[in-house]
């Protein structure tokens, strides 16, 4: 039973970081900061999935949500910068 309370406290911490990062992702004017913040939201979501005993989902989210999708965002950003210049 004690584990449950510790997990809940960790989950509250992770959740508040996620919410702050989500607000940063929306309010910040620099696109790169917004993309990184969205990646952080995904990464912490995968930790939360692990706490909620869903290891399969956590693996997928860590690999795809925070790895590959951040990468393709940066490809698009790089191309837009190059075309703007």
């Amino acid at each position: 039973m004690n584990n449950e309370i510790i997990y809940s406290v960790i989950a509250i911490g992770i959740g508040s970081i996620m919410l702050i990062m989500a607000v940063i992702a929306i309010l910040n004017n620099k696109l790169s900061v917004a993309i990184i913040a969205a990646g952080v939201v995904s990464l912490f979501a995968s930790v939360l999935f692990l706490l909620m005993s869903a290891p399969d989902v956590a693996m997928t989210e860590a690999a795809i949500g925070s790895g590959l999708s951040t990468l393709i965002f940066f490809y698009v950003l790089n191309k837009i910068k190059r075309q703007n210049a």
Partner: peptide, 8 residues
């Protein structure tokens, strides 16, 4: 998951 790791 394995497919995502291969893509990585």
């Amino acid at each position: 998951q394995g497919g995502a790791i291969i893509a990585s």
